[in-house]
Computed example of a mutant assay.
Amino acid sequence: MDKKYYGNLAVSSAPHLVTGLDTTKTMAMVLIALLPSFLVSIYVFGFRVIALTLVCVAASIGFEWLYNKLMHKRQTVGDLSAAVTGLLIAFNVPSSFPYWMAIIGCFVAIIIVKQIYGGLGRNVVNPAITARIVLFISFATEMTTWPTPSMSTVDAATSATPLGVLQEGNVADLPANMEMFLGFIGGSVGEVSAVALLLGGLFLIWKKIISPIIPVCFIGTVFVFAFVYYAIVGGDVSALNMAVFHICAGGVMLGAFFMATDYVTSPIMPLGKVIMGIGCGLLTMIIRLWGAYPEGVSFSILLMNILTPLIDQLCIKLTYGGAKKK
């Protein structure tokens, strides 16, 4: 953890926890929590998932080590934050994604978003989320080419994600909610199994690594918004079915538990966490239902990251008050 000393005071970057749990242990817990989803993705998409993940993790650690070396800074690769970022980048791309493009995403996340702003605790937005958006804008074809789940090896054929099918208006072709819950669908490496991500998220909550406020508000908002929308517009599918569909499809589970809860880029106050979760849910559904892009999780989290300092200021003022102007 990066520390600066001012007299008898030691000031360090987040997380600030009065406990034996440090940054390295925290990041190790996150890696453990992501393991179920990683194993499911290997089963669904084949062993290329392992190679892609290793490339992303190695590139992220390598870029952090190289930057610290060139800038004559203390090495921070041991805190495992770069490893977590690399794993999340791998989780946010298709299993067929070219390695060299993934390395560009790691460079953006580690060097541009994290290190140039001062390293862990000083980045304004989530590095992995920003990398995903940059990769999507730069390599749209590769980022939207989804290998068909083969349960053993990555097949040459491709298929649309459930959200892509929905955007095309083919409601009858949507996979069953149970298929999405278990993970037997096309999509990014770490997004396909809602149950695996849920298990990992509950593990982090149990270990008190994250607060349940943001995930509950995020997922709850997506569910309620979808239920109300489809109850109003009607159609051939039930509102309840589509509400469950939207929380299982795409990156809601991954974003809610592993990205929107990032210590550095999420609000500190409980009220701020509520605002963060609801804001992410609302923006996700607005983009999904009326935007040109079928998925909105990444953009919603990025926008709420940008608003986090303002949310913190508002919530601190509402909670503790402030000096009145004479």
Rank of each mutant, 00 (worst) to 15 (best):
L17N: 10
M304H: 01
A51W: 11
M151Y: 15
S266T: 02
T144P: 04
I301V: 15
N170L: 14
Y67L: 06
S81N: 04
K207I: 00
A156M: 13
C56Y: 05
G234M: 01
C106I: 06
H72T: 01
I137E: 10
M71G: 04
Y6H: 14
V195T: 12
E64D: 12
L52I: 05
G86D: 07
P15M: 07
A194V: 04
M180E: 05
I287D: 08
A90C: 05
S37G: 15
V171E: 14
L314R: 13
I32H: 00
S238D: 11
L31W: 07
V228A: 06
V228P: 02
N241G: 06
C106P: 00
C106T: 09
I116F: 14
N177P: 00
I306P: 06
A239G: 05
S95K: 07
L39A: 08
D2V: 15
I247S: 01
T144A: 11
L66D: 10
V49D: 01
V222A: 01
T26V: 14
Q167H: 14
L54N: 07
I104F: 13
S37N: 08
I268L: 15
P149F: 11
L198R: 00
E295P: 04
V44P: 00
P36C: 01
G277K: 05
S138P: 00
I275W: 00
S95T: 13
A226D: 07
V44L: 11
P162I: 08
Q115H: 11
L66E: 10
I275H: 01
M151D: 14
D2I: 15
F203P: 01
A160G: 00
I301L: 04
D79Q: 00
M180V: 02
I137P: 00
T308R: 00
G183Q: 06
S138M: 06
V49G: 00
M253W: 05
D262I: 07
A28K: 09
F97S: 03
V244Q: 09
I213G: 08
V222H: 04
K326V: 11
G190F: 06
I214P: 08
P215E: 10
P267T: 01
A176T: 10
C56P: 06
F139K: 05
T148A: 13
V55Q: 06
F258L: 12
P175I: 08
L271F: 12
